[in-house]
């Protein structure tokens, strides 16, 4: 499944976001407990994107927000955001909201 620019995506609620030893992590819960052999560590960009996806957004909206937040070039920000979206879709971490 690849990202559709026109669809709004939202983070699945089956992860609990924690701060552990200064690191941002996601603990899979509910039916997702067996999806990952452990927890997921987020870097600052992916933590920002995950938090943004608490509410539905398209990839373009998220990439623009990343560019603004980190002062990044819009094309580079889009590429990085797409890479993470693909990874999250592959691991069934996002839902399509329409």
């Amino acid at each position: 499944m690849s990202v559709d620019n026109n669809i709004r995506y939202q983070a699945k609620p089956n992860y609990i976001r924690r701060k552990v030893g200064g690191n941002d992590i996601l603990i899979p819960v509910a039916e997702n407990v067996a999806d990952f052999n452990g927890f997921i560590e987020l870097n600052s960009t992916s933590a920002f994107i995950w938090d943004k996806l608490a509410t539905p957004h398209t990839i373009n909206e998220v990439a623009d927000a990343v560019a603004d937040e980190f002062g990044a070039d819009k094309i580079i920000a889009f590429g990085d955001t797409k890479e993470l979206f693909d990874l999250m879709l592959e691991h069934n971490m996002l839902v399509e909201v329409g």
């Binding site: 609990i16 976001r17 603990i27």
Partner: peptide
């Protein structure tokens, strides 16, 4: 109550 804190 323990689970909802987000532990493994």
């Amino acid at each position: 109550s323990i689970y909802r804190q987000g532990f493994m």
